[in-house]
Design a protein around this nucleic acid. Structure first.
Lengths: 166, 166
DNA sequence: CATTTTATGTCAGTCTTGTTGACATTCCAA
DNA sequence: TTGGAATGTCAACAAGACTGACATAAAATG
């Protein structure tokens, strides 16, 4: 106690265990909301969150390789392969033998795959947009700063990729 | 284009699909970081994330009932029960028959349970604290605002519980 | 050219954590 | 007192992660 006034606007009260606990619980509850809408859609198609993640990053990085996706998603190849196999079988993803390096597979969404990806990301963006609008631009900037600082450094690399422009 | 200057500080550029996409990916990567440290610890004890969540909220709300926990965690009672059973068997959680209503079970951490909960939340707080410190108090305020707006309304209730003071 | 390394895919088996269904116990209210 | 609602437990199953072993093809290296 009697800590007041010693630090002015540089107060470190936001670093108390209590504040951190709130942040931790906020992450937990918010992440549930974050995934809820796509999850509901995926149920209709008998897909899961793993399929969503694959579709998202194949759309984001068209022509990416399996290995690349592995690094981004942080799962084993066996796990990713199971998901990719169903997506290819169902005609949502196309897996083309690499041009320069024929060991690689370059992954692309088909028209059908792009449609589902859109549906999923529309739903997720809708919630994100509502949250952004409610909180305002300055809050959003802070949101992004904290999230970025919370990632593993290696993931920050993936995050910043193709991200040089505004 | 030529959108510049029309809206001053009220610019809606933070609501573009591109900005939202970055927010979505930031959530994905940050959540991985968020859970990484506790997950590593849990491995040593042959527990999983579900055990961590149970320990956290039993510690947060001592004496809570199974039903209460169910609502917070958003899983089925059968799923929670499996986790609780192992925690009780291993002597981390005590399950006392309710005083007023004998159908209920009141859940408490044992001394042993409190030790593990501390170890887990210390690790998680360490990362959260580093991120908070790096981003600064204003960013943290924005972080919390956006997360809260992203939750399902029902979860916002749980989140605000016992949260009236500073 | 022979060998090794890399990229990918597959099979089998396990673990965690979610699900439903069935059931026992307890409480409460008609 | 009896039937329904609430609470919790047991059993069986599914999704999606994991490890380990192995196959194939292509690239890189000596």
């Amino acid at each position: 106690m009697a800590e007041t006034g010693g630090q002015g606007s540089e107060s470190l009260l936001f670093l108390t265990d209590e504040q951190l606990r709130k942040g931790i619980e906020a992450m937990f509850f918010a992440y549930r909301g974050f995934t809820a809408d796509p999850d509901r859609i995926l149920d209709h198609y008998d897909y899961g969150r793993a399929h969503h993640r694959a579709l998202h990053f194949i759309n984001r990085f068209p022509g990416t390789t399996v290995n690349n996706l592995l690094a981004i998603l942080g799962v084993t190849k066996q796990s990713l392969n199971r998901v990719l196999r169903t997506l290819v079988e169902d005609g949502l993803v196309e897996s083309r033998v690499g041009l320069r390096d024929k060991r690689e597979r370059n992954l692309h969404l088909t028209a059908k795959g792009a449609v589902l990806e859109q549906e999923l990301s529309d739903a997720q963006r809708r919630r994100m947009r509502a949250a952004y609008r409610k909180a305002g631009p300055e809050a959003v900037a802070g949101f992004r700063q904290v999230l970025e600082a919370m990632m593993d450094p290696e993931m920050q690399r993936h995050f910043s990729e193709k991200d040089h422009g505004a």
